[in-house]
Each structure stands twice: as C-alpha cells, then as structure tokens.
Amino acid sequence: MDMRAEVYSPLQNTAVWIAAWLYGYEPTDSLLDALKSLGGAHTWDGAPIADMLKEIRRVALTAEEEPVVRLILWGPGQAPGLPAGSEASKALTQAGALVVRGSGASHVLVPQYDDEVVWRWFEEAERLPEPSWLSPGEADQLLSQATDEAARLVKLTGYRTSELTNPRLTVGSLADFYDTPGLPSSVTPRAAKLFARADRVAAIIETVTEHLGDHSLDPQLFALWRHIRTARMAGVADAVHDYWREI
C-alpha cells in the first residue's frame, strides 16, 4: 500500500488553481506553471493540457448550478462520490478525481500520476452522490482532534535516534514538502488553514510509518486518513464557493 498516496493530494491544489483560473483570479500562464509543479507534464488523452483547459471552460460556462468545481478523494473507510460501477469510478486511482459541473451533466476528470500526469474525461448524466458538505469549521474541528491524536501517538512511540532526536523536526520538513508548490494567493484563509492542518497530520503519519519505521500504530493512524481527505475536500469546496460568490 502506498501510504503517501493516501495522505498527500496534489489534486487538492490542482482543484483550487483551476477554480481560481475559471473565476478570473489567475491567468492561464500561472495555472500552467502550477500544474507543471504539481506532477510535471500533463496530457489529456494524448492532447496538450491546454486543450483540456479549454474544454473545462466551455463546460463550466454552460453550468446551471454553481460553484462548478469539486474535489473527490476516497480510500479505506470512505467511498468515492461517484455512481457505483460507472466508467469514471472504474478509472479512479488513489489520487481521486475532479468534477466540473456542466449543463445537465457532471464531467469527471481522472488523473493518473506517473512520470507525467495523464488525464481521462468521463461524462456522468446521473446526479453524483452528495458529499458530506461539512463546513470549514466542522472539518477543522474533526481534523484538529485527529491532529491531537496523531501527535499523542508519535509521542507514545518514544522513538529517538541521533538522526531524529526529535520526530517533530521530521514532521516539519515533511509539512514543507506537502505545501509545495503552494496555492493561489486568492485562496480563502479558511481553506488555507484546513489544508495546512491536513498537511500537518499527513506529515505526522508519514513520520511514524515511513521515517521511524514503526508500524505498530498503523490501525490507529490509518483511521486518520478519512479526516485528512474530508478536510481537503471541504477546503476546496470553501475556496471554490468563495471564488463564485465574489464574481
């Protein structure tokens, strides 16, 4: 199992950048630079990523409901918000998917992260299952509780070596990794706070399971994954709604 794929989400930042671009807060050049930082080269069924962006804009302009961009993450204990058995759900990887709402349909964009990012596009006429729709405050509270629990579990390991005298130093360096390449400056403070806290918990989990090599707490730590994913989705929803509300 790829632990990092469960706790790290380049798709989170991708969703915010695309929303900021759609609503006029970021130019195309800045979006393309951000996408390159989020996985390298991007292609859409063999076509340049710019073609996919044009199609996203075309679809979004037909939307009868707002906001139009949504992040879908899933994993153990958390089903994907897509119709069961659909082509989009079959194509899902651990990375998740983006949904762009159009007129009478939802367009599901599924990335495959490897040496480059390859996108696939699916159209769903059936209304997608509703997510939890937690408010930023509710998601933050759940993640705050998860943070306290994760930190307590790190302390219980009692892990000390000359390389990692203090496990929290590694947590800090990993948090810096998760934050790269950053978010648009226009992102809401509420969303940025949720993302930062999610990155912090993810870094703690990686410190224990990968850098400290302690898997005795895996069942407890893995239970935190759902809170991380939920916070990332709630943060994207808040940022996108704010972009839409301000236009």
Results as ranks from 00 to 15, higher is better:
A223W: 03
D29T: 10
T62H: 05
L221R: 13
H107S: 04
M3G: 15
P111L: 06
V201H: 08
D199Q: 10
S86C: 03
P27F: 01
F122P: 00
R168D: 10
P83V: 02
G213P: 04
P10I: 03
A91R: 14
A139N: 03
A237R: 06
S173K: 13
D218T: 07
R160H: 12
P83D: 09
L156F: 07
W133S: 12
A105E: 10
G137Q: 10
T161G: 09
V240M: 08
D242Y: 06
W21I: 00
T147W: 08
A139M: 03
V59S: 01
E210W: 04
Q78I: 05
I18V: 14
S9G: 06
W44Y: 11
I18G: 04
F222C: 15
V7C: 04
G102M: 01
S89L: 04
A239T: 00
L194H: 11
L128R: 03
P181T: 01
Q220I: 00
T230G: 09
V99Q: 07
W121R: 11
G40E: 04
A50R: 15
L142T: 08
M1R: 09
S173A: 12
W225N: 15
G39V: 02
L82K: 07
E138D: 15
L217Y: 12
V236I: 04
A79R: 07
H107K: 03
G46Q: 08
A47E: 14
K54A: 15
W44Q: 09
A88S: 12
Q220F: 03
R70W: 07
S185R: 07
L61D: 08
A20P: 01
D176W: 04
A192S: 12
